[in-house]
């Protein structure tokens, strides 16, 4: 029975090794390298030599205080994300309430779920070009529809208006993601103890009361999760505005990720400025994630741990006193 004492623990590390190596080479090193480039004068194609700037924070200062385009791109990113997120969560919650309502008993849910989720699977770039074709001027499907319904006699050039363009990009984002959000919320409702609803029904609570008093509070954690993942996804918004109108009209849909891409890989190849911008974006994402972990931490477990520690401390003190 000596074999039993063989230690297998080294396999744990061994099996994680590919992950660790890939992370170090393809993630950690590039991030540190990006951060470093942010402090240098690296620009232009095939530049071999570059140096840390005399004022290392010059790129960051320039971006934050003098660069209207960058500030504008952050603002656009935030605006487009907010216009998409509020209706997205609203509609998803409404559909969740309907689909899980025990009295309504909506049929064909499977089919509806498949159709609502469908846009999420299709390449975002394809959808962006598709929408820009649908809103084409002077003749495109949406203009045809407007004339058929008698909403307008003249063709409208939708894509010239800043807010219309932002609205369409937000709509695409909303349209691609509300099904996903709904599926997550429904799964969350399925996880709620059904006896809660039974008890509420016996007490005479109606559907609306059950939704606001049981469902919504139970979904708090899941909604926070949706909020933060959507925020971080929104920060990276790139494909749709790029292929929709290339950030236009008048930079109204120009996002932070497009800024990074355009600085580094087009025109003057300002790698240093793009790197500094990515670090600023990274810090924003990190702060948002930190908020997520803080809000989502297991409160009961944390409280239990604190209690335990206090008791142990008290016991230790007591022990000393006894001795």
């Amino acid at each position: 029975m000596r074999r039993r004492s063989i230690s297998y623990s080294r396999y744990g590390f061994l099996f994680c090794l590919p992950f660790i190596l890939a992370f170090l080479v393809f993630s950690l090193y590039p991030i540190l390298y990006t951060a470093f480039i942010g402090f240098t004068d690296l620009k232009g194609v095939a530049t071999k030599e570059f140096h840390v700037l005399d004022d290392p924070f010059e790129n960051f200062k320039n971006l934050l205080f003098d660069n209207d385009l960058f500030r504008n791109s952050l603002l656009n990113t935030a605006i487009i994300w907010i216009i998409n997120f509020i209706p997205q969560l609203g509609i998803a919650l409404l559909l969740t309430a309907w689909f899980t309502n025990r009295r309504l008993k909506i049929r064909g849910q499977g089919g509806f779920k498949i159709l609502f989720y469908m846009p999420n699977m299709i390449t975002a770039g394809t959808i962006a070009v598709l929408f820009s074709s649908l809103f084409a001027y002077p003749m495109g499907p949406v203009n045809s529809l407007y004339q058929m319904l008698g909403w307008s006699d003249e063709p409208i050039n939708f894509l010239l208006d800043k807010w219309t363009a932002r609205g369409i990009v937000s709509f695409i984002q909303y349209w691609m993601w509300y099904g996903h959000t709904m599926l997550i919320l429904i799964a969350g409702v399925m996880g709620i103890n059904p006896t809660l609803y039974e008890a509420a029904e016996i007490d005479g609570a109606n559907g609306w009361q059950q939704f606001t008093k049981i469902t919504l509070p139970s979904l708090r954690t899941i909604m926070l999760y949706i909020l933060i993942t959507s925020m971080i996804g929104g920060l990276q918004m790139f494909d749709i505005p790029l292929l929709f109108q290339n950030g236009g009209p008048d930079n109204a849909t120009y996002t932070a990720s497009m800024f990074i891409y355009a600085q580094a890989f087009k025109g003057q190849y300002l790698y240093n400025r793009a790197a500094a911008a990515s670090m600023i974006l990274f810090v924003i994402a990190a702060v948002l994630s930190a908020i997520l972990f803080y809000l989502l931490r297991d409160r009961d477990a944390a409280r239990l741990k604190r209690e335990e520690r206090r008791i142990r401390k008290a016991a230790a003190k007591g022990g000393v006193m006894n001795a």
């Binding site: 623990s9 099996f15 993630s27 390298y33 990006t34 690296l42 971080i232 990274f282």
Partner: peptide, 30 residues
């Protein structure tokens, strides 16, 4: 496997889950 850094490694994986691709793009390309 019950190895020494199992718990810290898992915490670490959770932490890096949300790093956006854009954060490292310039360095990665270079």
């Amino acid at each position: 496997y019950n190895w020494r850094f199992r718990q810290p490694f898992f915490t670490f994986i959770v932490l890096i889950m949300l790093i956006p691709a854009q954060a490292s793009a310039v360095g990665f390309y270079q």
